[in-house]
Amino acid sequence: MSDSTEALVERVARKTYQRDMQGEDWEMSLAIDGLLSTGESEFVDAARDLIDRQIELQGTEGKLGYDDPKPWLDDGARAQSESSALVNGCLEFYDRTGEEKYLDAARKQVEFLLDEATRLKDGTISFASEPIELWVDSIYLVALPLARYGAETGDEAALEEAVDHIVAQEKLLQDPYEGLFRHEWRETPNTYPESTFWLRGNGWAAAGILNMLEYVPDDHEHYDTLVDSFQRVCAAMLDLQDASGLWHHIPDDPWTAKEASGTLQFAYAFHKGVELGLLEEDAGYVEAAERAFEVCKSVVDEGGSVTRVAVPPGGPDVPLDVASYGQGWFLLAADQLEG
C-alpha cells in the first residue's frame, strides 16, 4: 500500500531540514518556503533556523548568506540575484513575529538590488555582474521577492522594478510563437547562449508571475501583460505534458529525461491558476496538475528525498539527482493540491 500524501510530506519535510545546505541561497529559499507550507511547528522552526543563519551571514553589500562563487558563472562574475529569493523567508517571519531584524534584512537585500546591481542598457537587473544577461530564473528569484517587499512595505520603486523585470522577460525571453521562455539572453553580443525551452525555467516563469500577481494591483498598466504571459506559458505547457504525468527536461524534446522539479512547479501553478480564476477551470489544468503530483509521489525515496531533479545550472545535459529546491517544490505542490 502506497504512503498517504500526509506521510510523504512529513518524510520529505524531515529530510529537507536535515540536508546540508551550507553555501546555498536560492536553493535553500525553496526549502524554507516548502517547510513553511507544511504549517507544522517542527518544520516552521527549522525554516526559521535556516533564515536566521542567512541573516547572520548577511554581508556588507546587503546580500544574504555566504555569497559564495557560483561554479556555473564565468570567472570573476558575481551572482547578483540568487540570494534575493531569501527575502521571502525574511518577510514571512517578519509577518509572523513582528521582529524588525527580518524586515531589516529584507530591506538590505532589496537595496542592494535597486542601488548596486549591474543592469542591462534598458535598466533591467542583470542576472550576474558579467556578462550582462537576462535569465528566466530571475522571474521567481528576483521579481517575485521585490514585488512582495514593495507591496508589503509600500516601496513603490521595488514593486515597479519587479513589474518592469517581467515586461523585459516577456519581451526578450518569451517566444512569441511558442509561448515558452528561453533560458537566457546576452546583451552583447545580442544572442541566446542557452536558448532551449528549459522545463524548470518555464516553471520559474509560471509560478513566479502567478505569485507576483498577488502583489500587483489589477489596475496597474502592465497587469494584463503579466496575466497574458502567465496564460501563454501555461497553455503551451499543458499541451506538452507526457502521458506519464511528468514533463521532459526540455519540454518540446521527448528524448530528454522526465524531470520532477519542473513537473511539481507546473502542478502548483496550474492548480493555483485555476483556483485564482486565471486559468479556465474546464481546460484540463486541474487534471494535469493532479496527474503531475500523483506521479511525483512515486519519485520520493524511502529516506524522503525527491529524486529525478535536474541539478544546477539546469542546461540540457545536466544530471538528475536530489536538490533542496526539489524538496521545497514537492512540499509547496502538496500544500496547494491537498493542503
Results as ranks from 00 to 15, higher is better:
A147G: 15
E290K: 08
G179L: 07
D282W: 01
R48N: 06
K15V: 00
L278Y: 11
D137K: 13
A257Y: 15
R291P: 06
K272Y: 05
E287D: 14
A85P: 00
R53Q: 12
L91S: 05
I125G: 04
G326A: 11
Y177E: 10
F43E: 03
V300H: 09
E280P: 01
A77R: 03
A323M: 13
Q336H: 04
K258R: 12
L30F: 15
D239F: 03
H222S: 15
V167P: 05
E290L: 10
R119F: 11
L210P: 09
L180K: 03
I166Q: 11
L246H: 12
Y94H: 12
A334H: 10
K121D: 12
Y192G: 11
E61Q: 13
A206P: 08
A260H: 06
I32H: 03
N190K: 08
V274Y: 08
R96C: 00
S29A: 15
T38H: 07
E82C: 02
G62P: 02
V44C: 03
L73V: 02
D122A: 06
V322S: 10
D252F: 00
P251G: 02
S138G: 13
E24P: 04
K101T: 04
P145V: 08
W135D: 12
R48V: 12
D253L: 01
M1E: 08
P316T: 08
D218T: 11
Y17D: 06
S298K: 09
V309H: 13
I250Q: 10
P145L: 13
P251Y: 01
G273P: 04
I132F: 09
D242A: 09
V227T: 07
C234H: 01
D45E: 15
K272N: 10
A46C: 05
D75C: 00
G62C: 05
L144S: 08
G154A: 11
L279A: 05
R53N: 05
G179H: 09
P319D: 11
Q22D: 10
Q231M: 02
D20A: 05
W198P: 13
G154S: 12
V87C: 00
G65E: 01
D25M: 09
G62H: 06
A168I: 06
F270A: 07
A128F: 07
H249F: 09
E40P: 00
V309C: 10
L113S: 01
N202G: 00
S229I: 02
D155T: 13
E294V: 06
D122F: 14
R14N: 04
T256E: 12
F330P: 01
E61Y: 02
L103T: 01
P71C: 09
I32Q: 06
P312G: 13
W198Y: 14
I32M: 08
A47K: 09
